[in-house]
């Protein structure tokens, strides 16, 4: 396990702030860190508000710490769309991790723009990864598509559900079952837990399971498991009492091994890099395009759209054609 000095932790915290602020000077740190990324197991944890995600993440971190691993937690909560402010309260549930030099917790607000957040979260996760944390947890509220995208920055996605939140299983309603590698019914000591497990298991039967790649024997995973791909399990935890958490730790380790052996892990990472590259390419092309067109060219196109003479797509195509000589409309 790595050990960071107080000064190193502070420097890391400041770099994370510059990432959040879109301050390009942080590229120096990211550039230096980039080749060292990829060693951490990145785990996305998502679920409805009130499912006990933060408490579960805290219990997971404790279990990893007892096994001698270091843990970074990126806890993402929505910004107020009206004021842009946010109350980030996940640390309340992570009190027992406080003061542990092997744990680094950072709260992040979504700050409105989905594209901006996933780019910032990706860079933040990369920096934490490169700092040598064994586990990087990205925790988000699983209420909508944007959070789903962020959870996809992870190698392994855990979807957390709790009983007694109405008749509906929230994860099914939010459409986030498809992204789960592991499902957890937290607060399993509460009435209705078994019903929630059953509902999830029934819903899973309708979800297409990740297809496995074949081959590579001689690991803890049987050939049969590989042939069948990864089977999403429903685990039960009571995070407040650390019950079921060891089983979850083991399941996450098993998933990581499966990712490695099956080749799915590499495929996922390539997809993630491709997504990050596309986001950045789109951003850079737009910036360059606006520079080249200048304010007048852009404003002229905007007037055409506003006056009802061009659709936005037609206007954008014409602008693009002006930029790229020889291209067709």
């Amino acid at each position: 396990m790595v050990h960071h000095s107080v000064a190193e932790r502070r420097a890391l915290a400041r770099a994370l702030t510059r990432i959040e602020n879109g301050d390009l000077s942080v590229q120096d740190e990211l550039r230096a860190a980039w080749s060292a990324t990829g060693a951490a197991h990145r785990i996305g944890v998502t679920g409805a508000p009130g499912s006990g995600k933060s408490t579960l993440v805290s219990a997971l971190a404790r279990a990893w710490r007892l096994r001698g691993h270091s843990v970074a937690i990126l806890s993402i909560d929505p910004s107020s769309p009206i004021t842009g402010g946010a109350i980030l309260g996940d640390r309340i549930r992570m009190r027992e991790l406080s003061g542990d030099p092997g744990v680094f917790i950072r709260s992040m607000a979504s700050r409105g723009s989905v594209g901006g957040l996933s780019a910032a979260a990706a860079d933040a996760a990369a920096l934490l990864d490169a700092h040598g944390f064994d586990f990087v947890v990205i925790e988000t509220v699983g209420a909508g598509q944007s959070e789903v995208e962020i959870a996809r920055l992870a190698d392994t996605v855990v979807v957390v559900e709790a009983p007694g939140m109405g008749d509906d299983v929230q994860a099914i309603k939010a459409g986030i079952l498809e992204i789960a590698d592991v499902l957890v019914v937290n607060k399993a000591d509460r009435p209705g837990a078994r019903k929630t497990v059953a509902a999830l298991q029934a819903a899973l039967d309708l979800v297409p399971q990740t297809s496995g790649h074949h081959g590579v024997a001689g690991t803890a995973l049987s050939d049969a498991a590989l042939d069948a791909g990864w089977v999403v399990s429903v685990l039960q935890t009571t995070a407040t009492a650390a019950e079921g958490v060891d089983a979850l730790v083991d399941m996450l380790a098993l998933h990581r091994e499966w990712l490695h052996v099956s080749g799915v892990g590499d495929a996922r990472r390539r997809r993630r890099y491709s997504q990050e590259l596309r986001v950045r390419l789109r951003e850079q092309l737009l910036l360059r395009a606006l520079q080249i067109l200048g304010g007048d060219g852009y404003d002229a196109a905007l007037r055409e759209v506003a006056a009802g003479r061009r659709t936005p797509l037609d206007a954008a195509r014409e602008l693009a054609a002006q930029l790229i000589i020889g291209s067709e409309l």
């Binding site: 842009g84 402010g85 109350i87 309260g89 640390r91 009190r95």
Partner: peptide
């Protein structure tokens, strides 16, 4: 928060 700031709230019984 309403003034547009990001508030990290850590809760009770902090050393």
């Amino acid at each position: 928060r309403d003034a547009g700031m990001e508030v990290i709230y850590t809760g009770l019984r902090q050393t």
